[in-house]
Each structure stands twice: as C-alpha cells, then as structure tokens.
Design a binder for these strands. Structure first.
Lengths: 181, 181
DNA sequence: GTCTATATTTCGATAGAC
DNA sequence: GTCTATCGAAATATAGAC
C-alpha cells in the first residue's frame, strides 16, 4: 500500500479513504484490467469474419495492448495464483455477466467455423477450445515470463521491444500455418 | 511461514532454523523448481534428434511434469513479477552457470537445424528464439492461467485433466504443422 | 534438532486535525 | 478530501528450555 501510495503521489490514508481496504483496491485493479482484456477476446472471436482475420486481429490487439502494459500478465497470474477463490466473483464483476457463459458460446460458434473449414479442405481438425487457448498462450505468456526471458536470452528493454515487434509479424503466420491441413 | 510449517508438520521456528529467513526459503524453492525445468529444456532442444522429435519430447515432458505440479507455473510467474531483481541470481544458483549463456547456444544450434530444414524444403523460415518461446508458451501458460480457464470454460479438476490429456495428443501436431511450409 | 514462548518488524487500517 | 500520527493485528525472526 505504501509503495502504491508513493507512486501515486499520495499516502496510505488516502488510498484507504477511496478504496476502504487493500482487498477492494486489488479488486478494482483486477476488474479494470479484466474488463479491457476479455471483451476484446470474445468480440473478436465471435465476429463475422474469417478465421485468418480473427487470428490477425487478436494477435495485433493483444501484442499492442500488452506492450504498453507489460506488468499486466504477471500481475493477473500472480493474483490468480494467490487468490484463486476470488477470481469468479471478480470476473463476473468485470464482465457484468456470468463469466462461465460468454466463452463457451464463442467456442461453439468457433467450432462451427472450424468444421466448415475442415469440410472445405482448408483447415486441419482442431478443438476450438484448444485453439483459443493456444492463441492466448502465445500472446500473453512472453509478457508474463518476461523477467526470465530477459535474463535467459539476454534481452534488455530495447531487445524485448524488438522481440515483440518481430512477433507481431511472425506469429499470425505461425498460427495460420498450424491450422492448415 | 505458518502455513508452510503446518503443511510440513513442523513449526515456524524449525523453518527458520533450516533456512534462516523467509527469503532464503523462497530462494530454495525457486531454485529447486528452476533446476528441474530448465536443464530438461536445454537438453532436449540441444539433443541430436529431429525437430519433430524435439517437439514431441518437450511437450510430453512439460505436460507430464506440470500435471503433477500444477502450482509451479503460477508460483514461478508470481515470483518473477514480485521480485524481478532477484531472478538473475536465483537462476544462476539453480543452473550452476551463467543463465545468459546456456539458451543462446541452444538457440544458435536450433537456428542451424531450422535453416537445414528450410533449405531441404520441409520447414517454413522461423526465428529459433520465437519458436522456442512459442513452444514453452503453449506448454506452460494453460497451467499458469488455470484458475481463470477453469471459470471461463467451466472446467472442474477432472475437466482440466481431460483438457491436458487432449493437449498431449493435439499440441505436437499443432506445432509441427505450424513449421511446415 | 525440535520445541514453546516471546521479541521485533511490517503492514493494513483508523482517528482526528486541517 | 487530504494530511500526520498512531493503533492493532499479523507475520517474521529469535531466545532459551529440552
């Protein structure tokens, strides 16, 4: 709390005045972040566009967004790890809906789109759920593991920027190729 | 500390007797985990086997290992996030070597292997570093994000097990297909 | 080495002046 | 609304008996 207050240029008392407790401040942060990340995912995957287009848009959105909020994936995963029992309530607050309803619907519509592609001979059969999780894994993980990648691959900040730029270009083709028969 | 001591069937005082401080206990845990995860990665990627074989082995090793230690990715990323300044020292302690030297060598040898495949017309050009990070992203992220996936996709423990089982079968072909021209 | 009891520090939260 | 000063709880670390 002291660290947050300092960075905000105020003191702990003021943080408590606004958020009432550390847990509520934490929830506010989590929900603000989640409400930016999830709707974009569901909206893009559920849009009436080609699968290649969805892949391109999603990767662009996530890499751009996370480049400017590098701490977000690490923070989110840390919160998931330390307070898994709070996640459901936090998510439903962030989405304004039952979090267990949105994605399964998206997955079912994706499943149809994939099946169409398989019948047309342009796609390899793959479970839609696995595909979605592959896509977000490839986008989010490098940011979450950034401190380790930086050391293991000797990347400073500039090198990590270049790495992500390269990823913006290469990742869409990687995923599209993965889906081809 | 109390929680750890209880689970271990001892008390806090004994933890301090062995580890001297919370930070040192934390470092011991981190290093033990890191020393299991990284050598397997470098060893497999550096082995004298085909790329397809490397992909298959790595995915099998990681998914098997993480299935039995589900908390590890979340814990590691949480530690990276909260104490990034300690990571370098912890890693060098875990590897018994400069952590910045091992992977770049592996990447260079992979780069050669990929270039050979590209010349032979069986591989798409891809940066070895991107490939390695794609591979570990796909293996590790689902475990790190598990509490969220569980809620968003409505997975209980058994469903998550099935999800990982399915992944064991599908992921190798996903990655191999991604590399084909 | 292992315990109980206790000291010390840290941190979240509140009181009260302005 | 915002601050300083302080309380009280919790957690880390240590002392000392066995």
């Amino acid at each position: 709390m002291q660290e947050i207050a300092s960075e905000a240029g105020v003191n702990q008392a003021l943080l408590h005045y606004y958020f009432r407790s550390k847990e509520r401040l934490s929830a506010a942060v989590f929900q603000q972040i989640a409400s930016r990340i999830f709707p974009a995912l569901a909206q893009t995957l559920g849009a009436d566009i080609s699968l290649d287009e969805k892949i391109g848009r999603l990767i662009a959105i996530y890499l751009d967004n996370l480049s400017q909020n590098r701490f977000v994936p690490g923070y989110l995963i840390s919160e998931l790890h330390h307070h898994p029992e709070r996640v459901e309530q936090l998510l439903s607050g962030a989405l304004g809906a039952d979090p267990g309803l949105v994605m399964p619907a998206v997955v079912r519509s994706l499943e149809r789109q994939i099946n169409d592609g398989v019948r047309a001979g342009v796609l390899r059969p793959i479970k839609a759920q696995q595909f979605v999780i592959n896509l977000i894994s490839l986008c989010i993980f490098p940011f979450a593991a950034r401190p380790m990648l930086s050391i293991v691959f000797g990347m400073d900040d500039a090198a990590f920027d270049r790495f992500i730029d390269q990823r913006r270009k290469e990742l869409p083709e990687f995923v599209r190729s993965a889906l081809r028969p």
